[in-house]
Amino acid sequence: MTDTLSEYSVLALYSAMAIYAIAFVLFTLDLAKGASGDPVAGAEAQKVVVPERRKLARVAMALTVIGFALQFAATLMRGVAASRVPWANMYEFAMTGTLIIVAVFLLVNLKWDMKFLGSFVTGLVLLLLGLAATRYYVEIVPLPPALQSYWLVIHVFVATLATGFFALGFALSLMQLLQTKRELAVAAKEKTRLAFLTRLPDSVQLENYAYRLIIIGFVLWTFTLIAGAIWAEKAWGRYWGWDTKEVWTFIIWTIYAGYIHARSTRGWRGTRSAWLAMIGFAAVIFNFTVVNIFFKGLHAYSGL
């Protein structure tokens, strides 16, 4: 029973990846179409573009929803097969983490049209899932005593949720930087290869979106830090011990705290704060990959 379920889980995950791959191509084509519709950068480019029916993006969005449903099923089956939450090793972190990134993306799209982030989201998710499935797949094993705690459910889940928001914040900040570059080029009447950004919101709007997502991520990350400390006290006998993972959680928190302050500092709002948002997410990815795999520490339980 357990074996069959976990096999189905793998099957569902690979199907989800195939569908994400198609969605990725369509999202990218949609972005590229934005460029062809605006061949000459110049005064024209600044014109507000009437929202058109973007067929490609809508199909890609529908595919992403299907991919999400399949990945959700895959994750659920893995959890049922293991009779525990499906986030206890690298493979499962990647599976649940990317699922949450997609969930946050879909959720945010209910509020604001962010289909232009589809390429980034599906691309990142594909990359992480591909790495996890090929390099870090492990069979289901029981939880070691150190992980047998309801804090595993809370602490790790909230951390992954925060990662989802930070990921979108990263993408928006990247778009913001490119958009700023394009806007400067347009203002100077120079040619730019960034014409595909014409249909996107302007840089200030992108920055506001990024900020709103990142502050949600920041609150969740603060909670992760506190929940982690409470769990560490129960499991290891101290709430904070500068273990490598604790150090990097702290570093990430500090970078994003810096980002929020930068947004309020004259001369730092805009391009500089966008860079901080991107550095913050780079640290998140570093924490999730390099620190887990190569650094020695108490969190090295993840059964790579």
Binding site: W242, T254, A262, V291, K296
Partner: peptide, 28 residues
């Protein structure tokens, strides 16, 4: 000033990094 607070925050983040690269007497 905001700028100083910000720089100190970022400096703190950077200063915390070496402790994860080199073993620490307190934890290891």
């Amino acid at each position: 000033s905001m700028r100083t607070a910000l720089l100190l925050l970022l400096l703190l983040a950077i200063a915390a990094v070496p402790g994860s690269l080199v073993p620490q007497r307190s934890s290891d």
